[in-house]
């Protein structure tokens, strides 16, 4: 039984890796076309990741530095196991939203621990910005997710998906909430208006500044897995998941490419501006959505 779940989990991780890395390579091509360039080939991100894994030397900065990288990588992989992908879930019945949100923090905290362990001031600034921004996007996203969970009386993603397949999508039921969640997911991914934690021009790529060789390769894979989790959550909560895996993938690709296109047009917020933006607009619109939805629910 356990062996079966292990094999399923491993296959799922490999599949998610191949899918997301080719998709993010394709998104580089999309950005290239927007800027009137050819752009790289779509398997460029595989080359980048494997190039870093094939490096002959890589510098370590102590035990905390190594351990944090593994904690981020392992925590993100463990989270990915709980996300249903269309009708496929690694452990059927174990797709709780609260578990996912709880485990997702492990990845970011491991990263924070490791980056601070490197002792580079740029890394500390980057991590403090990332955690500050987390305060911004988590709050509106969680309010919207709580409304969905309350109206369905369940926190299992499979139940939420099935209720949307039977009825209407949450995108149509609560459009304001979907917009807020979309922007929050862009903040989670660190896409363009919210990329102050990794700003390459001012703090030299932030938390990643001291990583080299294999460490950076592992963290790039971790970032791809985190992308699958966050965009997958949005598709499951608002676009009705998918009847099959293919259905899910098409919705996922549309959402991801839309985010890439939007982010390629926008400049960068300062970190206090992005938190202010999330709290001023995100929080107020999500509370309006809560009042409307709960009003209909109780009447």
């Amino acid at each position: 039984m356990i062996i079966k779940f292990l094999i399923r989990g491993l296959l799922f991780l490999i599949g998610a890796f191949i899918f997301q890395v080719s998709l993010s390579g394709f998104s580089r091509k999309v950005v290239g076309r927007i800027q009137k360039r050819y752009g790289p080939v779509f398997w460029q991100n595989f080359r980048d990741i494997f190039k870093f894994l094939f490096k002959k030397t890589s510098i370590s900065h102590g035990f905390i530095f190594d351990f944090g990288v593994l904690m981020a990588f392992g925590g993100t992989m463990a989270t990915l196991i709980f996300v249903p992908f269309g009708n496929f879930a690694v452990i059927p019945g174990q797709t709780n939203f609260i578990v996912i949100i709880y485990l997702l923090a492990i990845g970011l905290l491991g990263m924070a621990m490791s980056a601070v362990g490197s002792g580079n001031p740029n890394a500390s600034i980057g991590i403090s910005r990332a955690l500050t921004q987390m305060l911004g996007y988590e709050l509106p996203f969680l309010i919207i997710a709580l409304i969905i969970m309350f109206t369905n009386q369940s926190s299992s993603l499979e139940v939420l998906v099935n209720s949307q397949i039977a009825g209407t999508w949450n995108l149509i039921k609560m459009p304001l909430g979907a917009v807020v969640a979309f922007i929050s997911v862009m903040g989670m991914l660190g896409k363009k208006p919210f990329d102050s934690p990794i700003a390459p021009a001012e703090i030299a790529s932030g938390p990643l500044v001291e990583y080299s060789g294999k460490y950076l390769g592992i963290l790039m894979i971790q970032h791809e897995f985190a992308t699958v989790i966050e965009v997958g959550l949005f598709v499951n909560l608002f676009l009705g998941g998918g009847k099959t895996i293919l259905d899910f993938m098409i919705k996922y690709i549309i959402v991801y490419i839309l985010m890439v296109i939007i982010s390629s047009f926008l400049p960068r917020f300062k970190v206090e501006e992005s938190v202010k933006f999330f709290w001023k607009w995100g929080l107020s619109i999500s509370i309006i959505q809560a009042v409307i939805t709960l009003g209909f629910y109780f009447s």
């Binding site: 580089r28 800027q35 790289p40 460029q44 390459p200």
Partner: peptide, 22 residues
Amino acid sequence: MTSRFDMERLGIAPMATPRQAD
């Protein structure tokens, strides 16, 4: 690097720190 000659199609991209650079 930018649109006219587009170095990225050869897989070459600018990087901010010496640790990540080749």
